[in-house]
């Protein structure tokens, strides 16, 4: 759901940039207090993996494809929605400037949708669910599915404000496509969290580790 430059008028794009920069500042504050010698390898590997997986478009029927976004993954593994903002911002900068994937003026909106909304929805859904169902993999799969769907709906609303999509058809199409794309998000997120928890149980957030015992 990388928005291209043509889809949002400049004044609106600027507003999304301002919102994104506020969350980026908070994400840098999070990084200052949380990143240590052990967490830096994890955040670097997660970022590389998210970049690679975002290039892997899988067919989801209806003439559409989708890939992992990774907001929920980053937030759950590193134990903070700001981890998602931090990683997704850097990934989106690289994608936009080097690969033309996602626009430059609209990068604030893309950071807001995939980093901020994806990160917060993924993190808090996971934290709420894991206490109830006691299964970190099921919880992370559901959280990741929502962290794909909700940003897509937010994107549809932004497209409607921009005058690019009509509101209801935009919400319907974005919702249907991303409800299916979210299944990829859910499965891939759960599998990666499982692998990370096996390889380095000390690195993943305690809410993943403790619940899996």
């Amino acid at each position: 759901m990388h928005i291209p430059d043509a889809f949002i008028p400049l004044p609106q794009a600027a507003v999304y940039w301002i919102i994104a920069l506020v969350f980026l500042a908070l994400a840098i504050r999070w990084a200052r207090s949380e990143l240590n010698e052990d967490k830096i390898p994890l955040i670097a590997v997660l970022a590389a993996g998210i970049f690679a997986l975002q290039s892997f478009n899988l067919p989801v029927s209806m003439g559409t494809s989708g890939h992992l976004v990774g907001g929920a993954l980053a937030a759950i593994v590193l134990g903070s929605p700001f981890a998602a903002v931090f990683i997704l911002t850097l990934v989106l900068i690289i994608q936009g400037f080097i690969f033309g994937d996602g626009g430059i003026t609209v990068m604030g909106a893309n950071i807001l949708n995939m980093g901020v909304i994806g990160g917060f929805v993924g993190y808090y859904t996971f934290q709420g669910l894991v206490k109830v169902v006691k299964n970190p993999y099921l919880s992370s799969a559901v959280a990741a599915w929502l962290a794909c769907l909700i940003p897509a709906l937010a994107c549809a609303v932004e497209m409607s404000i921009a005058g690019t999509f009509p509101l209801v058809p935009g919400l319907v199409a974005m919702g249907i496509y991303h409800a299916i794309i979210g299944v990829i998000e859910g499965i891939v997120t759960a599998v990666i969290i499982y692998v990370l928890a096996m390889a380095r149980p000390d690195l993943v957030d305690t809410s993943v580790g403790v619940a899996s015992v």
Partner: peptide, 26 residues
């Protein structure tokens, strides 16, 4: 990550993503 990215070059779907598909629909 490099392995996943390399495989993606050959196997990734060329269909538009969810946002592009929505743009085509509307």
């Amino acid at each position: 990550s490099l392995l996943i990215g390399t495989v993606a070059v050959f196997l990734a779907s060329g269909d538009p993503d969810g946002l592009e598909s929505t743009a085509l629909v509307v």
